[in-house]
Every structure is written in C-alpha cells, then in structure tokens.
Design a protein around this nucleic acid. Structure first.
Lengths: 240, 240
DNA sequence: TCGCACAGGATTGCATGCAATTCAACCGGA
DNA sequence: TCCGGTTGAATTGCATGCAATCCTGTGCGA
C-alpha cells in the first residue's frame, strides 16, 4: 500500500500538517470520527505518527478525544467562534500595546507601512476576485504576525501562532461582493492601529486592535447561518 | 522491573502528570536532558506513553524538543517568567472583565466571598508557616480558577488552565517572613476585584486583575537572583 | 599539540503485535 | 414491538523490535 508516500524525513510533522489542512479545508468534516487505522491508511504511515499528530491537534483544539474512544473533528459552534475571536482580539490588543509602549524600530515601521500599501493597492484595483482576496489574506496575516512578533513577548507570540484562533475552520470565508467592503473596513482599522503604534499610544493601540479583532464576527455569523441553511436544504433534498 | 507500577488505567495521562510534577518541583532540573528510555525505566512504563507525554508537555512549554535529538526540560529565564506573567495577567484581566459585564450569580458571589473569608482568616491567624502558605495557595488558586470559569468563555478558560502560566517552575516560592505580607497584598487586590465584579465595573475589574497578576513579579525576580547567587557560590565551592 | 575522520554506542522515529476496552449487531424474552 | 443481555468485530492503548540518526570518544595524520 504505497498510495502516497510521505516525503519528509519526519513523518509526524508532515502528518500533523496534513491533518490540520484536511480539517481546515473541510475534507474532514466537523464531528467526523477519526480512526487511527483509517488515517494511517489514508496518509500511508503507521498508527504511531497518527497518534502523535492527533495528540498535538487535540491541544490545538482542532480535534477532541475521549480516552479509549478515539478522536473526532471538533465541532465549532457559533458561540465557540465568538469566544475564540474574543480571546484572540484581547491577545492582539496586548501585542499592539506592548509594541506601542516599546516604540517602533524604523524597519518595523517600514514593514507595517508595506502592509498598508499592499492593501491600499488591492483596494484601488477595485477587483473582488478570489485571488485578490487571497492576496489580502496574505498581507493581513503578515500585518498581524508582524505586530505579534515585534511586541517582543515570546510567550504571547507562541500563544498566537500555535493556537487555533486564526486557523479555526470556517474562518476561510469566501470572497463575495461584500469582500471588498471587508478590505476597506480592515484597512481603516489597520491605518489607525499603525498611527497609534507610531505615536506610542499603547492604550489606543490596544483597544483599536481589540475592536479590529471582532470585525469578522458578523461575517462569521452570517456564514454560519448560510451553512445551516444549506445543510437544511440538503437534508430536504434527501428526504424528497 | 516492577519498581513502581502505575495505578490508573491510562498510563499516558498519569505519566504526563507525573512528569509535570517532577519538572515543577525541581526534581528534573532545568535544561536536563530527558531520554525516553531513562524516563520509561523511572516511571516503569514503556517508551510509548513517555513519548506522548513529552509531546503534550512540549505544547505546554515545560519541555523543549528538537527533531531526532530528544527533549530537555525547558529553561526559564527571568525574562521568560516576566513575559509569561504578563500574558497571564492580561488573560485574567479579560476573565474579570467578562464576568463583571455578565454579572455575578448569587452562588458565584458566595464562592468568591468564601475565598476572601478564607484568606482573611489566614491573615488573622498571623502565622507564616509552610502549611499556612500552602493553604493560601489553595484558596488563591480557587479564587482565580473560579473567575476564569465564571467568565463563561471556554476558549479563555482552556488557555488559562492548560498553559504553563501558573505552573511555571519557580513560581512555588518558599514561605518566609515576607510571605505574610504577600498574603495581605493579595487579599487587598482580591477585595477590590470582587468589589468591581459586584458593581459590574468591567474595566476596573480588568485592570485591577492585570495589576494583581504582576504582583509576584518582584518576588520571582528576587528568587531568581538568589538562585543565581547560590549557583555561583556552589561553583566557587567546587573550584576552591 | 591540534584537527579531523571514523567507529561504536546510545537514542530517536516508526512499524507492528497483543491485550484490554469499546462498539454494534443479534438474539431471546416479555 | 420493545428491551436487556451477550457475543464478536473494531478500535484503542501499550510494549517492543528495527532501522536511521545522532553523539562520544578514539586514533590517525599534520
């Protein structure tokens, strides 16, 4: 059974990444049971790295396991999403505050300005195709990651990169007409955050960032209702 | 090889707990290399649960591992401690704010009052023996855990119980003459936090709790310098 | 004396076997 | 028809074997 030989030397790492991706892009649907043998066959490794990967993903809250009963893909309710985003917003706010209090190094300033410019360009292009949105996601990610890094608190940074906040499934919302508005909203927040950072206004930076972190909430809620509706429709189709 | 049979059905859980304890109480010193076989022999289990436990502890930042080179007990510098405590303070502040905004249920109010009373009693006793301090630690822990729970944000609660903030080694500072003062300081903060919670003053509760979370900083710094001094002395002894 | 290659041992990483537990279907009885 | 008990398959949890990798110390050459 050599369906798909894993390339890297370290299987566990690869497996963890692959599983994370499978969960996040929805291939493994929420609530789905994950058997070690099943995954082992699917990824062409033995159960050992699978088991380790699942333990890791459990700590990331992407899967949940019960003793002697294996793992399943974690179900994210809308409340879960809200809670996760609230925590993330607070942590991002903290990062912004620390950075403002420390002051921006010139090159850090340049990096953030670069992000602002990149998004401004996307907005000016007035396009709202998927690629534009993906590019926004990349720059946006760089913006937030940079602030978390520049803040200079390793413990904070670890929490932010490791935990599922950003990676929680369903945050990959699809681009649509409103996507472009989302860009504009985000950019407005970003500009103000950077302004606060430059002026060393820690509290202002903190709370701007907090609020910014809650921006996608409405969007996610809408997405949730759409998904529920689709599920209901599909159910009716089957019944019919 | 039956030196110490593990009782529970689930070895991995037990092993994780035992290792966590061994690291936290200093039996496994910082920077010490952890070999799977060594630990397996020590805890009388095979390498498999050891490996899983180490993976878990790595995510808790109690050990650090390099691929193909095993794990070592994480070294905590004073800067690490400060960063960890800063993050924890922010998260505790968030919990306090959420709880204040939600309002206290009567039984929640009673639980917190119970903690206040318990510590007040310890202070009134004017004793500063180890047992008194351990009792304080228990009540203090209950106080903070309660607030984290009552806040009603599961994601936040998970972060706070799972991560090493509280459990970071060296936070088990020894009781001494100043220990009693520490109780008084803590109690003063607790009373004000509870007051803010009762009045629904979210911002006040948040910042009181943040400040409270930084209370042990000075203490930890002192402890660090003492340890360094001791280490230096020992080194000189060896050299002499 | 110093630097470097190499060999042997130690250790990790992964696969797999086996016992214990859980899950599911079936069967008998009311 | 419904319900509880039982049995067998599926699955997890742990132990262990083996190959690959890394570390240590030794010997050779400059």
């Amino acid at each position: 059974m050599h369906s798909e030989v894993v390339s890297g030397a370290n299987s566990t790492e690869e497996v963890t990444g692959k599983l994370r991706e499978l969960i996040m892009n929805g291939t493994l649907v929420q609530g789905e049971r994950l058997t070690e043998t099943g995954l082992a066959a699917r990824l062409a490794v033995s159960r050992t790295p699978i088991r380790l990967a699942l333990a890791t993903l459990e700590r990331e809250d992407l899967v949940e396991g019960e003793p002697n009963r294996g793992f399943r893909v974690r179900r994210f309710s809308i409340e879960d999403m809200r809670e996760i985003m609230e925590v993330r917003a607070v942590l991002e706010g903290m990062a912004a505050r620390l950075l403002a209090e420390k002051g921006l190094e010139p090159e850090q300033d340049a990096t953030l300005q670069d992000c602002l410019d990149g998004i401004a360009e996307l907005i000016a292009s007035k396009r709202h195709d998927p690629e534009t949105f993906r590019e926004f996601a990349r720059i946006n990610n760089r913006f937030h990651t940079s602030i978390a890094t520049f803040a200079g608190n390793a413990a904070l940074q670890r929490l932010m990169v490791r935990n599922p906040f950003r990676s929680a499934p369903l945050l990959h919302f699809l681009p649509n007409e409103e996507g472009h508005d989302a860009l504009i909203d985000a950019q407005r927040d970003h500009i103000r955050v950077v302004d606060a950072l430059r002026r060393g206004q820690g509290t202002r930076a903190e709370f701007l960032m907090r609020e910014h972190g809650l921006l996608p909430l409405q969007r996610v809620e809408q997405l949730f209702t759409n998904i529920s509706k689709n599920a209901a429709d599909r159910h009716m189709d089957e019944a019919g």
